[in-house]
Computed example of a mutant assay.
Amino acid sequence: MSVLDLVREDLRDFAGYGSARSTRLQGRDWLNANEAPWPNAADVDGACRRYPEPQPQALVDALAALYRVDGAQLLVGRGSDEAIDLLVRATCRPGVDAVLATPPVFGMYAVAARLQGAAFVEVPLVDGAGGLMPDLVRVVDIARERRARIVFLCSPANPTGAAIEAEAIARVAEALRGQALVVVDEAYAEFSSQASALCLLAAHENLVVLRTLSKAHALAGARVGVAIGHPQLVALLRRCQAPYPLPVPSVALACAALSAGALRETQRRIDAVCSERTRLFDGLLRAPGVRRVYASDGNFLLVRCIDAEGAFAGLLAAGIVVRDQRGAAQLGDALRISIGTPEQNDRVLDVFGAPRDQQSVTSSAQCMEAGAQRLPGEGASR
Rank of each mutant, 00 (worst) to 15 (best):
P355H: 11
V123P: 03
A129K: 10
R304Y: 08
D324I: 08
Q359N: 01
A287M: 05
D135N: 15
L207D: 09
R356D: 10
A166K: 13
F281E: 10
V182H: 03
I306A: 15
L4G: 07
S19T: 05
Y244K: 05
H204T: 06
G319Y: 09
A36F: 07
R93D: 13
A119P: 01
L100M: 02
R146M: 13
P124Y: 09
Q26P: 00
A187C: 08
R223I: 00
D307C: 10
R146D: 06
I169H: 04
G327I: 09
R223A: 13
G16P: 07
F191N: 02
L75Q: 05
R147W: 01
S259Y: 01
Y188D: 03
G371Q: 10
R264D: 15
D43P: 07
D10F: 02
F300R: 00
S155H: 03
G71N: 02
S196W: 07
I228V: 14
A162F: 12
Q55C: 06
D13R: 11
C199T: 15
W30D: 08
R269E: 15
G79C: 08
G371C: 12
C48K: 05
G327E: 14
T23C: 04
V123Y: 03
L86S: 03
A187S: 03
C274T: 11
L59P: 04
D333M: 09
R149K: 15
V123C: 08
R382P: 09
L285H: 08
Q330D: 11
R147N: 14
P156T: 12
Q366I: 01
I169S: 03
A222K: 11
L219V: 04
E343T: 13
L331R: 08
P245F: 14
R138G: 01
C48T: 12
G77A: 15
L74R: 01
D307H: 10
D29A: 13
R49T: 10
A113F: 06
L181C: 06
R28A: 11
L213M: 12
V172G: 03
A118V: 07
A41I: 12
E205G: 14
D45T: 09
W38G: 01
F352M: 05
A47D: 12
F281Q: 05
S196D: 11
G261D: 15
L6F: 04
